[in-house]
Protein backbone atom coordinates (compact mmCIF):
# COMPACT_ATOMS: atom_id res chain seq x y z
CA UNK A 1 0.00 0.00 0.00
CA UNK A 2 2.73 2.35 1.04
CA UNK A 3 4.89 1.40 -1.91
CA UNK A 4 1.94 1.93 -4.23
CA UNK A 5 1.55 5.44 -2.91
CA UNK A 6 5.27 6.01 -3.31
CA UNK A 7 5.12 4.75 -6.88
CA UNK A 8 2.19 7.01 -7.62
CA UNK A 9 4.10 9.95 -6.19
CA UNK A 10 7.13 9.16 -8.30
CA UNK A 11 5.03 8.81 -11.44
CA UNK A 12 3.33 12.10 -10.68
CA UNK A 13 6.64 13.87 -10.15
CA UNK A 14 7.99 12.45 -13.41
CA UNK A 15 4.87 13.35 -15.34
CA UNK A 16 5.03 16.91 -14.01
CA UNK A 17 8.61 17.07 -15.18
CA UNK A 18 7.53 16.24 -18.72
CA UNK A 19 4.31 18.23 -18.48
CA UNK A 20 4.85 19.85 -21.90
CA UNK A 21 4.63 16.43 -23.55
CA UNK A 22 1.36 15.71 -21.76
CA UNK A 23 0.10 19.08 -22.92
CA UNK A 24 1.10 18.32 -26.52
CA UNK A 25 -0.49 14.86 -26.50
CA UNK A 26 -3.63 16.14 -24.77
CA UNK A 27 -4.11 18.99 -27.23
CA UNK A 28 -3.38 16.67 -30.14
CA UNK A 29 -6.10 14.25 -29.04
CA UNK A 30 -8.55 17.03 -28.19
CA UNK A 31 -8.17 18.91 -31.48
CA UNK A 32 -8.31 15.55 -33.28
CA UNK A 33 -11.96 15.41 -32.27
CA UNK A 34 -12.61 18.54 -34.35
CA UNK A 35 -10.02 17.92 -37.07
CA UNK A 36 -10.29 14.14 -37.58
CA UNK A 37 -7.51 14.10 -40.22
CA UNK A 38 -5.07 14.41 -37.32
CA UNK A 39 -5.73 10.73 -36.59
CA UNK A 40 -4.64 9.65 -40.08
CA UNK A 41 -1.05 8.31 -39.89
CA UNK A 42 0.01 10.43 -42.87
CA UNK A 43 -1.06 13.62 -41.06
CA UNK A 44 0.73 12.53 -37.94
CA UNK A 45 3.94 11.96 -39.92
CA UNK A 46 3.42 15.32 -41.53
CA UNK A 47 3.30 16.98 -38.11
CA UNK A 48 6.47 15.14 -37.14
CA UNK A 49 8.30 16.19 -40.32
CA UNK A 50 7.16 19.80 -40.39
CA UNK A 51 7.91 20.15 -36.70
CA UNK A 52 11.60 19.44 -37.25
CA UNK A 53 12.26 22.98 -38.50
CA UNK A 54 10.81 24.79 -35.52
CA UNK A 55 12.18 21.97 -33.32
CA UNK A 56 15.78 22.54 -34.39
CA UNK A 57 15.43 26.32 -34.22
CA UNK A 58 13.94 26.20 -30.73
CA UNK A 59 16.64 23.82 -29.46
CA UNK A 60 19.22 26.35 -30.65
CA UNK A 61 17.24 29.16 -29.04
CA UNK A 62 16.99 27.13 -25.83
CA UNK A 63 20.79 27.02 -25.50
CA UNK A 64 21.09 30.80 -25.49
CA UNK A 65 18.07 31.11 -23.20
CA UNK A 66 19.80 28.81 -20.70
CA UNK A 67 22.51 31.45 -20.25
CA UNK A 68 19.85 34.18 -20.04
CA UNK A 69 20.32 35.58 -23.55
CA UNK A 70 18.31 35.56 -26.78
CA UNK A 71 19.22 34.96 -30.42
CA UNK A 72 17.02 36.69 -33.00
CA UNK A 73 19.35 35.76 -35.84
CA UNK A 74 18.33 32.08 -35.89
CA UNK A 75 15.98 32.38 -38.86
CA UNK A 76 18.46 34.47 -40.84
CA UNK A 77 21.19 31.89 -40.20
CA UNK A 78 18.75 29.22 -41.35
CA UNK A 79 18.69 30.82 -44.80
CA UNK A 80 22.19 32.35 -44.91
CA UNK A 81 24.07 29.16 -43.97
CA UNK A 82 22.52 26.79 -46.56
CA UNK A 83 22.75 29.60 -49.10
CA UNK A 84 26.50 29.78 -48.49
CA UNK A 85 26.72 26.00 -48.83
CA UNK A 86 24.80 26.00 -52.12
CA UNK A 87 26.85 28.84 -53.60
CA UNK A 88 30.03 26.96 -52.67
CA UNK A 89 28.61 23.84 -54.35
CA UNK A 90 27.92 25.86 -57.49
CA UNK A 91 31.56 26.84 -57.75
CA UNK A 92 32.66 23.23 -57.40
CA UNK A 93 32.63 22.14 -53.76
CA UNK A 94 31.36 18.56 -53.37
CA UNK A 95 28.00 18.21 -51.61
CA UNK A 96 29.24 16.68 -48.32
CA UNK A 97 31.78 19.50 -47.99
CA UNK A 98 29.08 22.04 -48.85
CA UNK A 99 26.88 20.64 -46.08
CA UNK A 100 29.78 20.81 -43.67
CA UNK A 101 30.41 24.40 -44.76
CA UNK A 102 26.75 25.19 -44.08
CA UNK A 103 27.12 24.00 -40.49
CA UNK A 104 30.45 25.81 -40.04
CA UNK A 105 28.89 29.06 -41.26
CA UNK A 106 26.18 28.65 -38.61
CA UNK A 107 28.78 28.04 -35.89
CA UNK A 108 30.83 30.98 -37.20
CA UNK A 109 27.91 33.40 -37.01
CA UNK A 110 27.27 32.17 -33.46
CA UNK A 111 30.93 32.70 -32.57
CA UNK A 112 30.81 36.23 -33.97
CA UNK A 113 27.60 37.03 -32.09
CA UNK A 114 29.03 35.54 -28.90
CA UNK A 115 32.29 37.48 -29.12
CA UNK A 116 30.55 40.81 -29.61
CA UNK A 117 28.05 40.11 -26.85
CA UNK A 118 30.64 39.02 -24.27
CA UNK A 119 33.68 41.14 -25.14
CA UNK A 120 32.01 44.38 -26.24
CA UNK A 121 29.03 43.82 -23.95
CA UNK A 122 26.46 44.50 -26.66
CA UNK A 123 23.06 43.25 -25.45
CA UNK A 124 22.21 40.01 -27.25
CA UNK A 125 18.82 41.36 -28.28
CA UNK A 126 20.49 44.20 -30.19
CA UNK A 127 23.45 42.25 -31.56
CA UNK A 128 21.43 39.33 -32.91
CA UNK A 129 18.75 41.63 -34.28
CA UNK A 130 21.42 43.48 -36.30
CA UNK A 131 22.87 40.14 -37.39
CA UNK A 132 19.43 38.94 -38.49
CA UNK A 133 18.96 42.05 -40.58
CA UNK A 134 22.42 41.91 -42.14
CA UNK A 135 22.33 38.22 -43.04
CA UNK A 136 18.83 38.48 -44.49
CA UNK A 137 20.12 41.44 -46.55
CA UNK A 138 23.11 39.48 -47.82
CA UNK A 139 20.89 36.57 -48.89
CA UNK A 140 18.62 39.04 -50.68
CA UNK A 141 21.60 40.46 -52.58
CA UNK A 142 22.94 37.00 -53.41
CA UNK A 143 19.59 35.71 -54.70
CA UNK A 144 18.30 39.01 -56.10
CA UNK A 145 15.10 38.25 -54.25
CA UNK A 146 14.50 34.96 -56.07
CA UNK A 147 14.20 31.56 -54.44
CA UNK A 148 17.29 29.52 -55.25
CA UNK A 149 16.12 26.16 -56.59
CA UNK A 150 17.92 23.38 -58.48
CA UNK A 151 19.68 22.00 -55.44
CA UNK A 152 21.73 18.84 -56.00
CA UNK A 153 19.94 15.56 -55.39
CA UNK A 154 22.33 14.35 -52.73
CA UNK A 155 21.72 17.59 -50.82
CA UNK A 156 17.99 16.88 -50.84
CA UNK A 157 18.20 13.25 -49.75
CA UNK A 158 17.65 14.16 -46.13
CA UNK A 159 14.24 15.49 -47.06
CA UNK A 160 13.28 12.83 -49.61
CA UNK A 161 14.46 9.44 -48.34
CA UNK A 162 12.16 7.19 -46.31
CA UNK A 163 13.07 4.36 -43.99
CA UNK A 164 10.00 2.18 -44.15
CA UNK A 165 7.08 4.60 -43.83
CA UNK A 166 9.08 7.10 -41.81
CA UNK A 167 11.07 9.91 -43.41
CA UNK A 168 14.84 9.95 -42.81
CA UNK A 169 14.45 13.51 -41.54
CA UNK A 170 12.59 12.25 -38.46
CA UNK A 171 15.45 9.92 -37.52
CA UNK A 172 17.95 12.69 -38.20
CA UNK A 173 15.98 14.98 -35.91
CA UNK A 174 15.84 12.41 -33.10
CA UNK A 175 19.61 11.81 -33.29
CA UNK A 176 20.50 15.50 -33.34
CA UNK A 177 18.14 16.34 -30.49
CA UNK A 178 19.44 13.41 -28.41
CA UNK A 179 22.96 14.71 -28.89
CA UNK A 180 21.82 18.15 -27.73
CA UNK A 181 20.12 16.70 -24.65
CA UNK A 182 23.19 14.63 -23.73
CA UNK A 183 25.42 17.66 -24.27
CA UNK A 184 23.30 19.83 -21.98
CA UNK A 185 22.81 17.24 -19.26
CA UNK A 186 25.88 15.10 -19.18
CA UNK A 187 28.88 17.24 -20.11
CA UNK A 188 30.79 19.78 -18.06
CA UNK A 189 30.14 22.56 -20.56
CA UNK A 190 26.43 21.70 -20.76
CA UNK A 191 25.99 21.86 -16.99
CA UNK A 192 27.91 25.11 -16.87
CA UNK A 193 25.39 26.68 -19.25
CA UNK A 194 22.78 26.24 -16.52
CA UNK A 195 25.10 27.50 -13.78
CA UNK A 196 26.12 30.61 -15.75
CA UNK A 197 22.45 31.32 -16.43
CA UNK A 198 21.72 30.88 -12.73
CA UNK A 199 24.41 33.20 -11.37
CA UNK A 200 27.28 34.25 -13.59
CA UNK A 201 29.11 36.16 -10.84
CA UNK A 202 29.24 33.08 -8.65
CA UNK A 203 30.55 31.14 -11.64
CA UNK A 204 33.37 33.63 -12.26
CA UNK A 205 34.35 33.49 -8.61
CA UNK A 206 34.52 29.70 -8.80
CA UNK A 207 36.79 29.83 -11.84
CA UNK A 208 34.28 29.00 -14.59
CA UNK A 209 35.16 30.87 -17.82
CA UNK A 210 31.80 32.61 -18.10
CA UNK A 211 32.42 34.39 -21.40
CA UNK A 212 33.54 31.19 -23.08
CA UNK A 213 30.41 29.38 -21.89
CA UNK A 214 28.20 32.18 -23.25
CA UNK A 215 30.02 32.09 -26.60
CA UNK A 216 29.54 28.32 -26.79
CA UNK A 217 25.80 28.86 -26.24
CA UNK A 218 25.66 31.17 -29.26
CA UNK A 219 27.78 28.80 -31.35
CA UNK A 220 25.39 25.96 -30.51
CA UNK A 221 22.46 28.16 -31.46
CA UNK A 222 24.19 28.95 -34.77
CA UNK A 223 24.83 25.27 -35.41
CA UNK A 224 21.20 24.31 -34.80
CA UNK A 225 19.93 27.18 -36.94
CA UNK A 226 22.17 25.97 -39.78
CA UNK A 227 20.91 22.42 -39.26
CA UNK A 228 17.34 23.70 -39.39
CA UNK A 229 18.07 25.62 -42.59
CA UNK A 230 19.81 22.67 -44.20
CA UNK A 231 16.97 20.28 -43.27
CA UNK A 232 14.33 22.73 -44.48
CA UNK A 233 16.10 23.33 -47.80
CA UNK A 234 16.49 19.57 -48.27
CA UNK A 235 12.76 19.14 -47.73
CA UNK A 236 11.58 22.12 -49.80
CA UNK A 237 14.19 21.94 -52.55
CA UNK A 238 15.09 25.63 -52.45
CA UNK A 239 16.63 28.42 -50.34
CA UNK A 240 15.42 32.01 -50.23
CA UNK A 241 15.76 35.21 -48.26
CA UNK A 242 12.35 34.91 -46.58
CA UNK A 243 12.94 31.24 -45.93
CA UNK A 244 12.09 30.18 -42.35
CA UNK A 245 11.40 33.76 -41.28
CA UNK A 246 7.88 32.87 -40.09
CA UNK A 247 9.45 30.51 -37.54
CA UNK A 248 11.17 33.14 -35.40
CA UNK A 249 8.26 33.71 -33.04
CA UNK A 250 7.48 29.98 -32.72
CA UNK A 251 11.17 29.34 -31.98
CA UNK A 252 10.96 31.79 -29.09
CA UNK A 253 7.54 30.60 -27.94
CA UNK A 254 8.42 26.88 -27.87
CA UNK A 255 11.13 27.09 -25.17
CA UNK A 256 8.92 29.41 -23.13
CA UNK A 257 6.01 26.96 -23.32
CA UNK A 258 8.47 24.26 -22.30
CA UNK A 259 9.19 26.18 -19.10
CA UNK A 260 12.63 27.56 -19.90
CA UNK A 261 13.28 30.59 -17.77
CA UNK A 262 13.92 33.70 -19.87
CA UNK A 263 16.39 34.81 -17.23
CA UNK A 264 18.37 31.61 -17.66
CA UNK A 265 19.51 28.67 -15.61
CA UNK A 266 16.44 26.51 -15.84
CA UNK A 267 14.79 24.21 -18.34
CA UNK A 268 14.60 20.79 -19.89
CA UNK A 269 15.50 20.45 -23.57
CA UNK A 270 13.28 17.39 -24.01
CA UNK A 271 10.33 19.60 -23.17
CA UNK A 272 11.48 22.16 -25.73
CA UNK A 273 10.85 19.55 -28.43
CA UNK A 274 7.31 19.11 -27.10
CA UNK A 275 6.89 22.88 -27.05
CA UNK A 276 8.03 23.05 -30.67
CA UNK A 277 5.60 20.32 -31.70
CA UNK A 278 2.82 22.03 -29.81
CA UNK A 279 3.41 25.25 -31.75
CA UNK A 280 3.65 23.27 -35.00
CA UNK A 281 0.38 21.52 -34.18
CA UNK A 282 -1.32 24.85 -33.62
CA UNK A 283 -0.11 26.10 -36.99
CA UNK A 284 -1.31 22.97 -38.78
CA UNK A 285 -4.65 22.92 -37.01
CA UNK A 286 -5.32 26.57 -37.77
CA UNK A 287 -4.59 25.88 -41.44
CA UNK A 288 -6.59 22.66 -41.56
CA UNK A 289 -9.40 24.25 -39.58
CA UNK A 290 -10.11 26.57 -42.48
CA UNK A 291 -9.28 29.85 -40.78
CA UNK A 292 -9.18 32.53 -43.45
CA UNK A 293 -5.80 33.74 -44.67
CA UNK A 294 -6.09 37.15 -43.08
CA UNK A 295 -6.89 36.08 -39.52
CA UNK A 296 -4.55 33.09 -39.67
CA UNK A 297 -1.54 34.79 -38.07
CA UNK A 298 -3.69 36.33 -35.36
CA UNK A 299 -5.25 32.98 -34.43
CA UNK A 300 -1.81 31.33 -34.27
CA UNK A 301 -0.49 34.07 -32.06
CA UNK A 302 -3.54 33.91 -29.83
CA UNK A 303 -3.22 30.14 -29.34
CA UNK A 304 0.49 30.38 -28.54
CA UNK A 305 -0.32 33.17 -26.10
CA UNK A 306 -2.92 30.98 -24.40
CA UNK A 307 -0.48 28.07 -24.19
CA UNK A 308 2.11 30.31 -22.52
CA UNK A 309 -0.53 31.74 -20.18
CA UNK A 310 -1.71 28.28 -19.12
CA UNK A 311 1.84 27.18 -18.51
CA UNK A 312 2.73 30.27 -16.50
CA UNK A 313 -0.31 29.79 -14.27
CA UNK A 314 0.57 26.12 -13.84
CA UNK A 315 4.09 27.04 -12.73
CA UNK A 316 2.78 29.63 -10.30
CA UNK A 317 0.46 27.06 -8.78
CA UNK A 318 2.93 24.17 -8.59
CA UNK A 319 5.82 26.47 -7.69
CA UNK A 320 8.16 24.92 -10.26
Amino acid sequence: MKSARYLFGAVRAKSMEYYTWLLFIGIYLATGLFVPTLFIPATFLNVLVQGTTVGLLSIGMAFVMLVGEIDLSVVAVASFAPMAGILAWEIGLPVPAAILLTLLVGVGVGLFNGLLITKLRIPSLVQTCAMWWMLAGIVLVATRGMAKAGLPNSWMQLGRVFIGPIPLLVFFFIIVVSAAVIFARRTVTGRRLYLVGGNSEACSAMGIPVDRIRIIAFMTSGLFSALAGYALSARMGFVSARFAVEWLMPAIAAPVIAGLSLTGGRGNLINVVAGAYLVQLIVIVVRAGGVSGYSYEFVQGLLVFIAILVDTVRRRVTGL
Partner: peptide
Amino acid sequence: ELVDIAKVWENFFM
Protein backbone atom coordinates in the same frame (compact mmCIF):
# COMPACT_ATOMS: atom_id res chain seq x y z
CA GLU B 1 28.92 32.60 -4.52
CA LEU B 2 26.25 29.98 -4.79
CA VAL B 3 23.86 29.43 -7.70
CA ASP B 4 20.45 29.55 -6.00
CA ILE B 5 18.57 27.60 -8.64
CA ALA B 6 21.15 24.80 -8.88
CA LYS B 7 21.28 21.77 -6.62
CA VAL B 8 23.58 21.40 -3.63
CA TRP B 9 25.93 18.94 -5.32
CA GLU B 10 26.10 21.07 -8.46
CA ASN B 11 27.15 24.05 -6.38
CA PHE B 12 29.62 21.95 -4.47
CA PHE B 13 31.46 20.89 -7.61
CA MET B 14 30.98 23.98 -9.78
